[in-house]
Each structure stands twice: as C-alpha cells, then as structure tokens.
C-alpha cells in the first residue's frame, strides 16, 4: 500500500482538533512522497454505527483516500494498550510508509505504544518533516541509510530541534497548533472504507477507561474562543472574581499561570503553559502575568494577545499584540462595565 497513515484520535466518536491538524500535515507529507493519505479509526460496532459516517466524511474532507476502521468490542472506549495493539496490527497488515498521529494525550500515547511494540523510533511534536529524497522511489519504505530531516519542538516550543530519523517506518506526532487544520481544496473526494478486526487479547482491558467524571460543561480551556488569565499580579484567589466576570460576559474561560496554582489560588486544571493546557483562542487576555517562557509556550497558539500589566517591560507585554499598561484590578472591571453598557444600549 505504502500510504501515509494517520491515527485519528477521538473521544467516543468525536475527533480531536489535533487529529485534523495531523491529517493536514500528513496530506502534505503524502503529496511529497507522491502517495496516498489514509486514516485509521478505532472503535466498536456501536461507535461506528453512531459516528462512523461522520468520522469517515471528516477524513475524506481532509483528503484521506481510504479510511481503515478497526472494529473490536475492546475498542468501545479508549485504552492505550488496546489502541497500541490494534495500531500495530494495522501496520503489520497494511504496510504504510509512515504513521502520523496528533501530539494530543491520546495521539501521543497510542503511537508511543506502537513504537514500543515495534521497537521503531518515534519523533514527537514535529513541526516540519522532509522525507528522504529517494523515498518516493522506494515504495517499501526508506532504505536503511536514508534519513528523514525533521524539525520538532523542545521545551514545549521554546526551542526547535532539527533531527535526522533513520527508520524502516517513520512514526511521527504533529505538534498541536503548529499547523492550521485545513480541508482539501476543491472539496472532498469520497473515501473508501476498509474494515479490519484486530485480534485483541484480554490483557489490553486493564488500561481501558473504566469510568469518567464530567466536571465542566460547555466550552473548555483548550477550545474557548476567549481565555482570560490571571498571574501573580491578581494577588489572591478572590482577586479572580472580575476575571471570571469578564470571561462569562465573553463566553470564555478563566486560565492562570503557574505562580497562581503554586500559591493554591486556583486548580491546576486552569493552568496555561508547558505543563498545563495549551490554548489557541481568538484572543488571550493575560492579566498580571509576567510571561515566563513556560507560560508563553502554552499561550503562543492564541491568535491575538492582550496583556494587562503595570510593567511595560514584562515579557507578556512585549510579546503581546495589544497591551494596557495599568492595574488589572481597575482595568478588568472597567472592561466589564463597558461591555454591559454597550449591551444595554438600545441598538
């Protein structure tokens, strides 16, 4: 087959944003290699009955010629062993020329499970991939000595690392938000569907999701169109009230810096940064955040940044597209008032 295969990481039938970015990146890789793009989706009969058509259509929108649907009752929900084993069986049977996944929790974990099972190298969080020039002439995979040249992120994106990859089957993840998900130009070409049934033993059941608890409804930090974050400058847990109000007015979410979680003012689930959540809102409103590099890499996917800070030299201010150099405790309530005033005004 020698196609470029993309694992579509999904949560009970809903593909991650990263999966669409990975499809976009892999489509360009497949074009460089003059080969097809195919997608791999794992689930059980019920999942495919409920979501199969939508998932296949989404893959076709992004240029997949074939969608391989791995069906098994142990794939009803996510589990790293079940996904890794099923993926290894797909690779064995279909012989792709490269396997790509999103740099999401599930994408990165499932492909690392594949790497462990096959003892193949895995290059994580790639931002640019140049296959070996001779690869297009070698449909069975790169010859032993031909290296791929890849740029990947280190330090959450603060540094780039150029690497060479020598492998019979390159395995890659695509750094989240490093590429915009873009459907094919000229509309989708219908994708063929190929079912396969991985042979999964009971041992994969141990790492299946057993249960889940939903804490937040609606928009989440990673998908919110507006994120209003506070840093050390907020001063206390109570100090976040005006930020909450602004986020509510804009249908957004409140985030924070590491200093805030270390002080116990907010839960770590709200932390934006290298060790927290990576966000990509339309606008990031950073209040009283100095902008340490670990915070910046979590926020740099934002389309616009407004920094509110008393220090005009703060990293966050100098890197932001927009800034208000003033005390957030005065500015944020004033913004809330202004929004309410305009909304109350008869149009």
């Amino acid at each position: 087959m020698s196609a470029v295969a993309v694992l579509i990481d999904h949560d009970r039938g809903v593909p991650s944003g990263g999966a669409l970015e990975a499809l976009t990146a892999a489509r360009s890789l497949a074009s460089d290699l003059n080969t097809d793009l195919v997608a791999v989706i794992l689930g059980d009969g019920d999942l495919f009955d409920a979501h199969g058509a939508d998932l296949v259509a989404a893959c076709a929108d992004y240029g997949a010629a074939v969608v391989h649907c791995g069906r098994h009752s142990f794939l009803a929900d996510y589990g790293p062993d079940a996904w890794g084993t099923a993926l290894a069986m797909f690779v064995e049977a279909a012989g792709p020329v490269a396997v790509v996944a999103a740099g999401t929790d599930r994408g990165a974990e499932a492909i690392a499970q594949l790497a462990a099972r096959t003892d193949l190298p895995l290059v994580a969080n790639c931002v640019n991939v140049s296959p070996a020039s001779s690869l297009a002439d070698a449909p069975s995979g790169p010859a032993g000595g031909d290296a791929w040249h890849i740029t990947r992120i280190q330090w959450g994106g603060s540094l780039l690392e150029d690497v060479t990859l020598t492998s019979t089957l390159p395995l890659l993840t695509i750094a989240q938000h490093s590429i915009e998900a873009e459907p094919c130009e000229g509309g989708p070409v219908p994708a063929a569907v190929a079912d396969f049934e991985p042979d999964l033993g009971p041992e994969v059941q141990q790492t299946l999701v057993r249960d889940r608890v939903t804490l937040a409804e609606g928009v989440t930090l990673s998908t919110a169109p507006v994120v209003v974050s506070g840093g050390r400058g907020v001063g206390s847990a109570d100090g976040f009230a005006p930020l909450e109000e602004l986020a509510d007015l804009l249908g957004g979410r409140v985030g924070c810096s590491r200093a805030v979680t270390n002080n116990g003012w907010r839960s770590h689930a709200d932390q934006v940064g290298q060790t927290g959540t990576r966000i990509a809102p339309e606008i990031y409103i950073a209040c009283g955040i100095s902008g340490a590099i670990q915070h910046w890499v979590g926020a740099m996917g934002s389309k616009n940044i407004l920094a509110i800070n008393i220090d005009p030299e703060a990293n966050m201010v100098t890197k932001a597209g927009y800034a208000v150099i003033a005390d957030l405790h005065e500015v944020v309530p004033a913004i809330c008032d202004e929004i309410r005033r305009r909304r109350d005004r008869p149009s």
Binding site: V123, E161, V163, T164, L306, A307, G321, V324, A326, V331
Partner: peptide
C-alpha cells in the same frame, strides 16, 4: 533512530505591541 542535528530558537513572533491605554 533519532539523532540530533542542532537546537535553535524559533523565529521571534513579530511583536509590535499596540498600546491601548495606560489606565
């Protein structure tokens, strides 16, 4: 199979900050 060629800093984000005010 993965081998480092070099580390480098990404290009700085173009940063002309538009100041919307100081109060």
């Amino acid at each position: 199979g993965q081998s480092r060629v070099r580390l480098h800093r990404p290009p700085e984000r173009a940063s002309t900050t538009v100041q919307l005010g100081d109060s």
